[in-house]
Write a protein that binds this DNA or RNA. Sequence first.
DNA 1: GCCGTTTTCGGCCCGACTGTTTTCAGTCG
Length: 576
Amino acid sequence: MKNAIISELFKQMADIMEILGEDPFRINSYRKVARVIGDTPTDVEVLDTEGKLAELPGIGKSSLAKIEEFLKTGKMTAHEELLKKIPATLLDLLKIPGIGPKAVKAMWENLKIKDMNDLKKAIADGSLAKLPGFGEKKVSAIAKGIDFLEKSTGRIRIDHALEAAQLVTGFLKSIDGIRKIETAGSVRRRVETIGDVDILVAADDGEKIIDKFTKAKFVQEVLAAGETKGSAIIQTTAVPVHVDVRVVAKESFGAALQYFTGSKQHNVRLREIAIKKKWKLNEYGLFDGDKMIAGQNEKEIYKKLGLDYIEPVLREDRGEVEAAQNHTLPELIELSDIKGDMHVHTTASDGMCRPEEIIEAAKKFGYKYICITDHSESSAIANGLSPKRLAEEIKQVRKLSEKIKGIEILIGTEVDILADGTLDFDNKILAELDFVTASIHSGMQSPREKITGRTLKAMDNPYVNCISHPTGRLIGQREPMDIDMEAVIKHAAETGTGLEVNAHPMRLDLKDVHCKMAVEEGVKLIISTDTHHIENLGLMQFGVATAARGWVTKQNILNAQPLEKLRAFVKAKRPK
DNA sequence: GCCGTTTTCGGCCCGACTGTTTTCAGTCG
């Protein structure tokens, strides 16, 4: 699958052209190609073979030729030509906050700065500050930017971002004069990783709000403080988080919320629609000339533009604008639809709590059922169960099930998929379980054919109901396995096997675009927390958000169905 | 470079903040 590398090539070409000062619209079109290819779950090579590549939005003749050249030869001449014009290391400098293409170009042309080390030297010896357009403050901002970049781990997890958002909104709520407050940006869209957190406030005295925010106890460093916008690095229990607070008037709150929720590309589409109607859309409202025709609430803006309301999780310019025009938006899965958790671990393997504790906690969530799924023997590091220990656990859980009322208690397993694609338990014992999820925990570096083959073979087993965390990625820590997700999804549909949407913010696996692909093929998904601690049960919201970002409805989710339906799904695959 | 229910040519989203300026360019979202 070459999607990621092709996307990166186009992004690099856009960056280089920007440093060279070429036509911004042309640059923008390269960026769009990068984004569209990066967002596409289907292998570009497959799309090309089927002649469907040019059907993707933003891919015209010229981009198609570049992509095909790369697929055929492993080279992209246009990319190589551009790289001859500037050193590749210049692109790293663009990542420094406060430095853009113009600054990079000026530093390179005048001071021969070509990488981070050169830049540090130029700051230290004072030469950068002498460059026209670079004063003392700008140089100090760049130094800070380098420091931030070197310390930061890049984008942060959605749960960490949400914690920061809740900390700041909680604090702001206590200030007099605040009429409304909402978290906007990528946090509101529940994107899997977050760059910074955007908080939107409706109030009259912006300066006062920003002043209080930037002086709050949790603020580590103030990056900017104006009349309507404050920007700061704040401390949370997990990581430092960049938070922006913006203040707008009450009558513009909806327009500002829409605007600052993004995504940028989604907003561009909306503004284009406004322009066609001879209107103007900005963060203050929707305007016909000087007259505001919408702005106080967000729904009004979509309505006036002739669109059904689009939930924030869908606002990625992945077809949602067209669907809103045609009234074909899906009715998205919600947290309250979830009826049970199908993947939890107990002290029997590597979980931190006893079954009774988890079951009681699940009852408090209002779940109708829960399934205990401890590891199998091969996951030795996770204290996986031998067949004998599993047999004991089955007995123990059945007993609990008789004792505890108000929730159905199921016994299952998270069984290892072994190197040859067979399972860690034989079918005889699997047949005694209510639900079986299978996953790969070893040999994750194997080549694509091997990983894919193991997964497909596991799905052939009539007792396997679900594949857990199908790609094995750990966000920010481990790349996904090299696995053919198209083949996996097709085979899941063929064999009546479900796929997990692992809700842990570090996994979110399946990810959104794979969820979309799976439901389009008619595959049932199971959103599970993979709980190891009691608190983990609360992570379900992130799995639900990820599925919703993949246009998933309640009907597509197995554990949003009554228990009878879930049991029927298991039964349908087993030998009659 | 892409695109078309006003367009196959001529458009392509919009504003805040900052710093270095003295009216604006660069960066960011």
